[in-house]
């Protein structure tokens, strides 16, 4: 409804633009800039809400109340945290590689914004439905790994380097099952475009045809975002905080922001690929998308308070010797069933 109104507004502006004789490219660029700013605000707000929800959920899982002091039931806690982070002194260790150290927060945040381009938030609510959608997502989100290595290496700190190495090896190992689990969906949908994949699930969600694929996706995605039980890179009891040990103030906030935004992103991709995206009866499409994403995020939070942490060798074994073969089997079986 609102989307339709915005679209008709856009159409009339576009007609006026053509009538004025200015090249359409400029209109596209202005539209992209506006959408980008809106998306950036959405990311920040979503992450603020998520930090609050995570602590509340964690609290209630452990029969505590969670944050209660700032505002009604602690609702203003994330804002207080944000203000605190802005005021913090920015410490760059003497021995650190200054430029790489400063550049890492930029590199970690860029893929977050770029992935959001192809996420269908609702009916016609997609910034740009690229025809290589899902491949583009994996291509871009791979950049995040580089940022972690940059941050860890540039800190010139043993904990940071250890955390970064663990993180990188874990992320590249689990990226393979992640990509392969998605291939089954691509076979069923016959397209890589995210809008097309949602469209293909009009009759039935893909989780019904791809239960194993969904489970592999869930495990691999949890490992991709470094969440418990795969949170070795940050294992605070052994290596302090991993790759962002030396970061403080706003630079740390950027890593934090990207980490939580990535949680949202893997949940959104999971909801789009396996849970039918924005489709659902009665409620407007963005609400459905939000509900499904929220369910996925909640599963990630739930994991954290259910499973103990893996050991490094268990982690690598699980990725390479369990998830990867199963992902291949899932792919072959899907292909076989489709052919018959």
């Amino acid at each position: 409804m609102i989307a339709g109104w915005i679209n008709s507004c856009y159409e009339s502006i576009r007609n006026w633009w053509v009538a004025c004789g200015i090249p359409l490219v400029w209109l596209d660029i202005i539209r992209a800039i506006l959408l980008g700013i809106v998306l950036a605000i959405i990311v920040v707000v979503a992450v603020l809400i998520l930090t609050y929800v995570e602590r509340k959920v964690a609290g209630h899982f452990q029969s505590r109340m969670g944050p209660m002091r700032v505002g009604w039931h602690g609702l203003l806690q994330p804002i207080a945290d944000a203000i605190k982070l802005i005021q913090k002194e920015d410490i760059v260790p003497e021995k650190a590689d200054y430029w790489v150290f400063t550049l890492a927060p930029f590199v970690v945040f860029v893929p977050v914004m770029m992935v959001l381009v192809v996420i269908p938030f609702g009916d016609h609510l997609i910034v740009q439905d690229l025809n290589i959608g899902i491949l583009y997502i994996f291509a871009v989100s791979g950049i995040g790994v580089v940022a972690i290595l940059m941050g860890g290496w540039a800190s010139n700190n043993k904990w940071s380097l250890l955390g970064a190495m663990r993180s990188v090896s874990q992320m590249v190992s689990y990226e393979l099952p992640l990509i392969l689990s998605v291939l089954g969906v691509v076979i069923l949908a016959g397209t890589m475009s995210m809008g097309g994949i949602v469209e293909a699930q009009r009759k039935m969600w893909f989780i019904v045809y791809q239960p194993l694929g969904f489970i592999i996706y869930l495990f691999a995605a949890t490992a991709e975002v470094n969440r418990v039980p795969f949170d070795l890179p940050e294992a605070e009891q052994e290596i302090v905080a991993g790759y962002n040990t030396e970061y403080s103030g706003m630079k740390f906030a950027m890593f934090y922001l990207a980490e939580y935004a990535n949680m949202f992103i893997v949940s959104m991709i999971g909801a789009t690929l396996f849970l039918g995206g924005w489709q659902g009866p009665l409620l407007p499409s963005p609400v459905w998308f939000l509900i499904k994403t929220g369910a996925m995020v909640f599963i990630l939070l739930w994991f954290r308070w259910t499973f103990p942490r893996f050991r490094v060798d268990q982690l690598m074994d699980f990725g390479w010797k369990v998830l990867l073969p199963f992902a291949f089997i899932n792919l072959l079986v899907t292909a076989l069933v489709v052919i018959i």
Binding site: I29, G36, L39, A40, M114, V117, V127, Q128, L130, Y136
Partner: peptide, 17 residues
Amino acid sequence: SDYIVVCVMFFIALGFV
């Protein structure tokens, strides 16, 4: 032209940080 928005988004992310 589909990728204009991708390119713009890259710079917006840099600008945001």
